[in-house]
Every structure is written in C-alpha cells, then in structure tokens.
Amino acid sequence: MSGFQCKQFYVGHDRCGMKVGTDSLLLGSWVDLAGVQRVLDVGTGSGILALMMAQRLADARASGFQVDGVEIEPDAAEQAMANFAASPWHHSLMVHKADIHQWQPPQLYDLVISNPPYFSAGQQLDCDKRQQARLQQSLSIGALLELAAGMVHSKAKIALVLPMEKADEVALGAASMGWFIAQQLAIQGRADKPAKRVLLLLQQGTGETEYRSLTIYDQNNQYSQSFKHLTKAFYLAF
C-alpha cells in the first residue's frame, strides 16, 4: 500500500521504513493539545503525527500554530515534505532533514511528540529502512527524553507511544530529569488480552498519574466504540 487516506489529508508512505499504523493514529488522536501552538514531531517519518497535530490545531482554531518534524532518513524526510506540501496546512508544517542529536531547534516547543524506536540492537527486521527507523541504538528512550527536555519550555509536554513494558523505564528516566507521567493509556487489542502498547503524556515537576485503558476490538472482532470515538476525526470508516 502506497499510502493512507485520512478524512482531511493523505499520507504517502511507500518511501518510509515505518508505514502509517495504529500506534501513531492512537497517539495523535489522544494527546492533550490544550495550550499548544508549537509542536515538534521527532522522527516524523511520513509525517503522520505532524499532520494529525496540524489538523487538530486547525480544527480548534489555534491561530499561528507551527508543527515541525525532524527526520534523519532522506527518503522519509522528502516524503514527509511532499505530504506536508499537499495538505491544507502546508504553511504551518515544516520538515527538518537532520539528526536530532545535532539539530538546533528554531524555537522552544509546547509539545514534543514521537512514535520512537523501541527495538534493541541485534534484532533483525525485514527492511533496512525499517531497521533504522526502529533501532534504539539510533535514538534511545533516555536520549529522546533528554533531547526533548532541552527543546521545550517549563510548561510543555512530551507524548510517546511505546511497548507496555517500557512504561516503568520511562517513568524512572523521566523522574531523574524532573518529569513525571501525567497520563497513561494502556492499549489492549482485545479485552481478554494484556496491553501491548501504552500512550504516555509527560509533564515537568511531580504529580499523580492518571491511568486509563482502551480496547481496540470488541467481542465481535469489530472496532470498539471507544476506539471509534477517539479516532473518528481521522478514520474514513467512522
């Protein structure tokens, strides 16, 4: 499949190691955008998360918003540029083809969002680009948190989607840098299965975590009402 059609935009992803998937669609639908005008998408890939942020901010009538994506892989960066240029919000979207470790942000952000790498070095995937897109040796969770913390102001947020088993690691790493998990949404494929993914929203300081869960499929193997409600701004079928 060469791309993914959302209600207000199309995402080509045939040149990207990671295709548009449920993880990003859930994260982009869920993250709290209250008070957000400047967003950074780290490892933007096809640009799906950045485009979702632009649509939501435009729908909320957030004037003057800016969404930037950083991507190291040249083909993915160029595809994100094309996707941004074809979108209704092209004036408010920008791709920076760069290594996030050396990149200097043009501004401080209200939100850093990412579907980051989470496979360990040594695991082999079926595509070199997919391998690069998902290797922790390129960008560890700890490095991502440290880099993001230097690109935001004191009231900003960081939003991530990760395997469930990474939640405790992120909580510990975040706490050592003065952050805490404000919201955590566990994602179950079905009600009788354990959660395999988790959405995290981090804020600076200390506080209690709000724990919730969401099931993607109901007992009839159809999308659950909760999933439809969360993602209805993007999925054509809802």
Rank of each mutant, 00 (worst) to 15 (best):
M1T: 11
L147K: 13
G69N: 02
D99P: 05
H101I: 06
K196D: 05
V20N: 05
R15C: 03
Q5L: 12
A148Q: 06
E71C: 05
G45E: 00
R61P: 01
L185G: 05
S176K: 15
F238Q: 02
E169C: 11
L135I: 05
H229F: 06
V152R: 06
A156P: 12
G3M: 04
Q219F: 00
L201T: 05
C16H: 06
H101F: 05
S46G: 09
A58I: 07
M1K: 08
A60T: 10
K196E: 04
Y235E: 09
S224P: 02
A85N: 11
V42G: 05
L201R: 01
N221P: 02
R197H: 09
H90M: 13
G207E: 11
Q219T: 10
A60Y: 06
V31W: 07
Y10H: 15
F4W: 09
A76I: 08
P105N: 09
L144N: 04
Q136D: 10
R212H: 11
Q123G: 07
G21D: 12
Q55K: 11
K7C: 07
A233R: 12
A121K: 13
E210F: 10
N83D: 04
S87Y: 00
Q8F: 09
K19R: 14
S176R: 13
P163V: 11
S92A: 15
G12P: 01
S213D: 14
K166A: 15
A50R: 00
P88S: 14
Q204I: 07
Q225N: 15
A167R: 15
W89R: 08
A143H: 08
S2I: 13
K155S: 15
V161Q: 01
Q184F: 02
G69R: 01
S226G: 14
V42R: 02
A86N: 13
Q184I: 02
D192Q: 14
I72D: 00
N83R: 06
R130G: 01
S224A: 09
M151L: 03
V161H: 04
Q8L: 04
K232T: 10
L111N: 11
L125E: 12
